[in-house]
């Protein structure tokens, strides 16, 4: 018996990871205007980093987060520098760039699969499973007993997996750090200028290309961290990233693609909606509805597009409040 229902725990972990992913996706969309189709694969790289460090080298699974940040960040940076930037400088449109991210996803996907085969063939006994990865057993547990005692509650058996604390904390920290980077530092101000008006930013001496490159590194890194946490809470594999992509897109669109904080909001809305919504629906309609879980983000996205095409952050809430005000006075 833990502190909270497993369902709520899963919802919190899932939405934390989704926030990191959709924030990264929106970040690079803001800077280079490319919807990154390989964003999910950056997370898959994180999953395999945790598998390698945790199972093969028997290290603490949380050590994998910084390593995954660097690996996925470098892969994303490579994609930007080697593919997207040369394409953009040749005058490619958003579509060519988008196709290029798909091509890059093919490459990452092949490499991950080759690596999974390699692990199975050479270290099959040590890593156990290289394609259905579930590493909850590696996670540490955090005891909430002392806290409960202080609060005067029943203290026995109140322990939770550490991921329940670490995933939301990491997400919060990365969101806050990103906010500080963008609003309080000179580099961040330059980055925002490069997003708002690239030619003008260049004329005042901002290195737009470097700013964009940094955004790709951060975006890939966040996806890597998110992926590195994934197998500690959920089942992962070579295709996890491409399945997640739909939820990431949905979260970004629900939040409004033109706003970094929208992506955070979108992830916070879509994550619990997927997990709690499925549970709620299955208690009403029966368990046959559970496999239809991926339809929830799609439905949320369709509803958002029909009623607030600019996403939640693009809506003029003040306008709605005013309308209601007039309605009640007349």
């Amino acid at each position: 018996m833990g502190l909270v229902e497993p369902l709520f725990r899963d919802a919190i972990i899932y939405s934390s990871l989704l926030v990191m992913l959709s924030t990264g996706l929106t970040f690079t969309y803001l800077t280079t205007r490319v919807p990154n189709f390989s964003h999910g694969s950056f997370a898959t790289l994180g999953i395999y980093t945790t598998l390698t460090l945790g199972m093969l080298f028997r290290l603490n699974p949380y050590l994998s987060a910084p390593v995954a940040f660097i690996i996925s960040g470098l892969v994303a940076l490579t994609m930007y520098l080697a593919v997207l930037n040369p394409l953009a400088s040749r005058g490619a449109g958003y579509l060519q760039l988008m196709i290029a991210t798909i091509a890059f996803e093919f490459l990452i996907f092949s490499f991950i699969n080759i690596y999974a085969d390699y692990l199975t063939a050479n270290f099959g006994a040590i890593v156990e499973q290289a394609r259905t990865i579930f590493l909850r057993k590696l996670d540490l547990r955090v005891d909430f007993g002392p806290l409960a005692q202080v609060l005067g509650m029943r203290a026995a058996g109140l322990d939770e997996p550490a991921i329940f604390i670490i995933a939301p904390a990491t997400t919060l920290a990365s969101v806050v750090l990103l906010h500080i980077l963008l609003t309080k530092t000179k580099f961040g101000t330059g980055m925002r200028a490069a997003i708002e008006n690239p030619p003008l930013a260049e004329t005042v001496g901002i290195n737009v290309r470097r700013a964009y490159a940094v955004s790709w590194f951060i975006s890939g890194g966040l996806a890597g961290v998110s992926g590195s946490f994934w197998p500690l809470a959920f089942l992962g594999g070579t295709e996890t990233g491409s399945f997640l992509l739909v939820s990431i897109f949905a979260a970004s669109i629900v939040g409004g693609l033109n706003n970094l904080y929208g992506a955070m909001l979108g992830g916070t809305v879509i994550g619990p909606a997927e997990i709690l919504g499925t549970a709620e629906l299955s208690s009403v309609f029966g368990s046959w509805i559970i496999p239809y879980r991926p339809a929830i983000p799609l439905a949320a996205m369709a509803v958002t597009l029909l009623f607030a095409p600019q996403g939640l952050t693009g809506m003029r809430w003040i306008h709605i409040v005013r309308l209601r005000g007039y309605g009640s006075s007349s």
């Binding site: 969309y29 205007r33 490319v34 919807p35 189709f37 958003y94 579509l95 988008m98 739909v246 897109f249 949905a250 970004s252 669109i253 693609l257 046959w288 496999p291 239809y292 991926p294 339809a295 983000p297 799609l298 996205m301 369709a302 597009l305 029909l306 095409p309």
Partner: peptide, 27 residues
């Protein structure tokens, strides 16, 4: 839902919509 959207935005919406039938067919 998305036909009035432009370019990349529409692409993402159509991509996500494409998943629905596979989920239904599988389940």
């Amino acid at each position: 839902p998305g036909i009035r959207l432009r370019g990349d935005y529409l692409a993402m919406v159509l991509l996500a919509m494409g998943e629905i039938l596979r989920i239904i067919g599988y389940n």
